[in-house]
Design a protein around this nucleic acid. Structure first.
Lengths: 212, 212
DNA sequence: CCCGTTCTAAAACGGACGTTCCATACATCG
DNA sequence: CGATGTATGGAACGTCCGTTTTAGAACGGG
């Protein structure tokens, strides 16, 4: 029942009891996603991960803060993967964005509105205090924006407009998921998806640029 | 130095040392906006408000939770007031939304990116745990949405489309402010403003409805 | 003038927090 | 077979948490 073979450098066994460090990061990511930074205790994390305090501080000598950074990065990569996967499976950018909102809505409802954005809660609770966490969250947003921007450029939207539009898409997804979670209703996400699709369609056919 | 005259039912003196209860709510609102629910202590609130623990528990027998609900409601009303004020001062809905994003950006930058949305941090940290706070936050979002929807209808947009668009506007503002705060950069807000303006302009002239 | 209500003041409590510390187990290497 | 370095188990520490409690001050109505 112990752990598994030692010297498993990255501990990437996919799922079969994934090594202590990996379990700790996963537990931290889930718990902080749900309860925020201050609302999540190290002891709770270690318990949920099936590890002990000694292990936590062994792998994360920087304590809670270092662990939170790892958790945010984990959430970042996880969502980036999902995002890429969905975008690749859709024919056009408008359909892709709608598909993302649908996926987010399903995830939210399936978790009884507990699992929102994996970085927002952690980032927001530590906004002006813990710069390391803030930076990790900021680069997560930037990364997602890049993924969306790439898709938009591939669809033929000009460089600069694609960047703006990608920023808009990520912000709106963020806000809509937040809204849906707080109001326990998937409608904000679905509406956001449709409206974003309108906006993308407008850009695809070179429609009116901001100034009415 | 004490307080002021007793029996000041609502304690609405505008600003001249506004009574203990009022000071407590204000301090709670600001602190929870910045640090979230779990990150803010009752003792910190009482100290910041220039009150004592006795006063806090006198006015809020329900403890921290009741105080948080009052703080969220206060943030709700505050932003609703600002929103109405800005919307009334602009000629059309597109300009109005842009003005709101500019105002939010200024507020964020002026506070060194500390003061984001007055309800998001509190709501997100207590999402599945404290239903009272969640409800207060949810009704705040709904109220803001109503204000925006009314403006859109007044500008001639049909009932149902105005509702969807208003939801989109509020979600995007929420997400953009979050993004701006985390990345310490006002660009997300400004981009969101312009893109929302495009979307509104599209609705004003009966443009393409979702289906590409 | 005194009583009751309203409000303020601060001490005290049990518990949880993040962190430190050390003793132990185990695989690997000389 | 020691010896070594990595990993685990868990007790212990000091601090701060939300809350309770008890006492006192400031007013209003009888």
């Amino acid at each position: 029942m112990k752990t598994r073979t030692r010297h498993d450098p990255a501990g990437q066994d996919q799922d079969a009891t994934p090594g202590t460090r990996e379990r700790i990061v996963r537990a931290a990511s889930v718990l902080m996603q749900r309860q925020g930074y201050d609302g999540t205790g190290i002891k709770q994390i270690s318990q949920e991960a099936g590890a002990t305090l000694g292990s936590v501080y062994h792998f994360f000598p920087g304590g809670k803060q270092e662990l939170a950074v790892a958790a945010v990065r984990r959430g970042d990569e996880e969502f980036a993967g999902i995002l890429r996967e969905i975008l690749d499976g859709e024919p056009g950018p408008a359909e892709a964005v709608v598909a993302v909102t649908r996926s987010l809505a399903e995830g939210l409802r399936a978790s009884d509105w507990l699992d929102g954005c994996p970085v927002t809660a952690t980032a927001l609770g530590t906004a002006g205090r813990l710069p390391d966490i803030q930076r990790a969250a900021s680069s997560a947003f930037a990364g997602w924006e890049g993924i969306v921007a790439e898709m938009l450029r591939a669809a033929g939207i000009a460089e600069e407009e694609a960047a703006d539009l990608a920023g808009m898409v990520v912000c709106t997804l963020e806000g809509a998921e937040l809204s849906a979670q707080v109001s326990r209703d998937e409608r904000p996400l679905l509406v956001a998806g449709e409206q974003l699709a309108r906006l993308i369609a407008l850009s695809l056919r070179g429609g009116l640029p901001a100034g009415s």
